[in-house]
Write a protein that binds this DNA or RNA. Structure first.
Lengths: 338, 338
DNA sequence: CGACATTATGACACCGGTGTCAGGTTTGAA
DNA sequence: TTCAAACCTGACACCGGTGTCATAATGTCG
């Protein structure tokens, strides 16, 4: 088994390698007869072009980088799934790059990544989607990028998000419709723009339904299970105890559920609990968590697809899309007891 | 900002590009004076070699592929973490490739992957670590590979595993020591070698402690949460009901816990539950699951490190390591009620 | 001090593709 | 029928490194 290169194809087909290259890239100005002849040789010799050589000639790597810093494994996996789907469609590869850095260290880390891997583009996932320094840096280096689930940052680029504010509104409204008025809220990590969005949705629902906002019912979390435990403790210690808790993600909601159960509280009879994200844990525990499902895979796939399109033929106009989130009701929320 | 290539470095330093290349690769036969001069220019011009060009010249990609088909997101993330750590140490990149295929389709899928991405090596994670056809295929194509968490397949290559049989033995023994005799067992996916290993450990513990093996207490699962629900139903319906359940992984154990709780059973008072893997869910639920922790990241990191080493300088002797698993006791198991 | 081994260096081809451009052929309109 | 425009094709340089080999400089030893 010896290597099949463009040269062997060319000599076998009796044409120049440039012509073979033309066929490979679907370029015009090749007669149908020649094209077919070459295509046949492709099959006969089982030829696959060498992406490395191609990359060298065109100064591209056909690799997209995906950077993240997220405590939720399921979220990361979903992001990867979407990104991989888009990459495979376009014969790109995906390079994953977890990084738990902020500020200057982040920039130099990314700079090193770009230098050493020659990425063609970068996908930014939360919380990086909203890091202005990073976006500015990429812009100055002229590195194409796409942002997933960004909420606040105004930027003329590719961005696919879902409507966190609306999702939070709906789930809060769901609790209100069940008769709850004292609804505690656990915030997410301050670096994530979703944190602010979800909080906004919560407040909008309260005000829409004429419920006064009570600051004492709000706890600061950071999306981690552990932070949920701390917040849960504070909330469950309140007197009077709130009749419902809306945590900004499912891990923190699970923490509330765990602590409540430990304290012999019945969920949802004694207290309703809602989360956000529809992480696997939401349906793996009892009672299952009422939550908001976002189309994470689809968001990422769209973002990466657009990114790759943009790399091939740079476009001026931005691409900004917002997909809908969806309320999923499970057993953790119920009508308030009279 | 223009590109810094080996040519610019060479002319700036007043040497040939071959000499620069020598310095880059730490080759001998460069005088100290020259070496230092070139190194200084590296810094001054902030030069980073182009991995693509290097790859073309040496016919390598500096990319390791990692294939998996595993329902557990946390397991996948842990594998990735370990693999990435090893790759970064060695200036390699990691290409992830989920694939849910069996048999011929798998082979042709992998073949396509290898052809189109020119991977330098492949990391096989369960269940692929024990797929003989795949291993044979890679051997015939002379693609370097390393296997993570393989248990059964005898193969002269790189393999890092943990002791599943011993882990299962210990956790079963733990239950026995708590006074349990009727211990149900839920098997994993039949394609995974861990399934058989864990079952073996369970049986060995029983026989070591003179408890007769009872086939009716064994259920077939497949590591998914959903399969755990089905198995849990059968087990909880048994009369007399077993006093303990050992599920082959934490997701299935979580399913047992959920169903038991739904049925108003108290865990661990009415029934003890144990899992395997120490997945995040094991400590996110109440009561926390007693389980076995494996050093997944370390296993993968070692495997990838050895693989990269092997790629640079092919070695004859195999590398086979077994790391220890560790029992973690939480609230889901307790002394049997008299 | 001369003969030979060793070390240091560079010229040049090469990896497997793509971009540029020139030259030949076909097409179509006058 | 003629000539310009459009189409097809290949020669050749190039991308940014590495491998081979020749040659120059230095070191070693009798």
């Amino acid at each position: 088994m010896k290597k099949v290169t463009i040269n062997s194809v060319a000599s076998y087909a009796g044409v120049s390698k440039k012509t073979v290259s033309r066929v490979l890239n679907n370029e015009p100005n090749v007669s149908d007869a020649t094209r077919e002849k070459v295509l046949k040789v492709f099959k006969e010799l089982d030829y696959t072009p060498n992406p490395i050589a191609r990359g060298l000639a065109q100064n591209r790597s056909f690799i997209i980088g995906c950077i993240y810093d997220n405590p939720s494994k399921s979220y990361i996996t979903r992001v990867q799934t979407g990104a991989l789907a888009a990459c495979q469609e376009n014969n790109y590869n995906l390079l994953i790059h977890p990084c738990d850095l902020r500020g200057d260290a982040l920039i130099s880390n990314i700079e090193h990544l770009l230098q050493s891997s020659r990425l063609d583009g970068l996908v930014l996932t939360p919380p990086f989607s909203d890091f202005k320094v990073l976006v500015d840096f990429l812009k100055s280096k002229k590195i194409p990028y796409a942002r997933v689930a960004s909420a606040v940052l105004e930027d003329e680029s590719i961005s696919v998000r879902s409507n966190d504010e609306q999702g939070a509104f709906e789930i809060t409204e769901h609790l209100i419709n069940l008769g709850h008025k004292a609804i505690a809220f656990i915030k997410g990590h301050p670096d994530h723009s979703a944190t602010e969005q979800r909080f906004k949705g919560y407040r909008r629902a309260l005000s829409t339904h004429g419920i006064e906002f009570n600051e004492r019912l709000v706890e600061e979390g950071n999306f981690s299970y552990h932070s949920g435990v701390d917040s849960a403790r504070s909330i469950l210690d309140l007197t009077p105890r709130p009749t419902a808790v809306f945590a900004s993600n499912d891990y923190m909601a699970a923490a509330v559920l765990k602590l409540a159960t430990q304290r012999q509280l019945k969920v949802p009879d004694d207290i309703s609990i809602a989360g956000f994200d529809n992480a696997p844990i939401a349906r793996h525990i009892w009672p299952g968590l009422t939550t908001i499902a976002q189309p994470v895979e689809e968001m990422t796939q769209q973002a990466v697809n657009k990114l790759i399109e943009h790399i091939s033929e740079p476009q001026e106009q931005p691409y900004q899309v917002t997909l809908e989130a969806r309320l999923i009701t499970r057993e953790s929320t119920a009508q308030i007891k009279p």
